[in-house]
């Protein structure tokens, strides 16, 4: 497995693990009926920090294992795979952005039912989360696309 395929696996695994944990950690906030803004911001910041640290540490580990490959620039096939996967991610993000824009009214309406004690804050969190998870979904598609193209050889 090439260095860049390993990097794609790291991106996929860490994104799934960290943002999966974030979703699970949001459940208590939903149960309370009131979004705890500072706590959510802390949780979000901690997840971003954890994601960066995990990706850096794992990338360093695979770079130590194959230093020559890690230092070499991506060759033409790896660049092509990166571009193809980024195109898939762009389509995903575009589609989800359009869906989110169309569904904003529905998403905003879901806020008060999820957070009855703070309807406006709830709406903001639901709409903001939908936009954010569109970005996460695009990254998952990018990493998965890279892995699939690497497995297929091109």
């Amino acid at each position: 497995m090439s260095f860049r395929e390993k990097s794609a696996w790291i991106s996929l695994a860490t994104t799934l693990a960290v943002w999966g944990y974030y979703v699970v950690a949001l459940v208590p906030a939903l149960a309370s009926g009131r979004p705890d803004g500072p706590r959510l911001i802390s949780l979000f910041s901690a997840c971003v920090f954890l994601l960066v640290v995990a990706q850096v540490v794992l990338s360093v580990l695979i770079a130590v294992h194959s230093p020559k490959e890690a230092q070499a620039p991506a060759d033409e096939r790896e660049q092509l795979i990166g571009l193809k996967a980024s195109r898939l991610a762009f389509y995903t993000l575009s589609a989800l952005a359009i869906v989110t824009a169309i569904a904003t009214r529905l998403l905003a309406a879901a806020g008060p039912s999820l957070f009855p004690r703070d309807p406006l804050g709830g709406s903001m969190i639901v709409v903001g989360s939908a936009i954010f998870f569109a970005v996460v979904a695009a990254e998952l598609v990018r990493a998965t696309g890279q892995i699939v193209y690497f497995r297929r050889a091109a």
Partner: peptide
């Protein structure tokens, strides 16, 4: 100036 995997492909 390529990877071994690209030569294999």
């Amino acid at each position: 100036g390529m990877t071994r995997q690209t030569v294999a492909a």
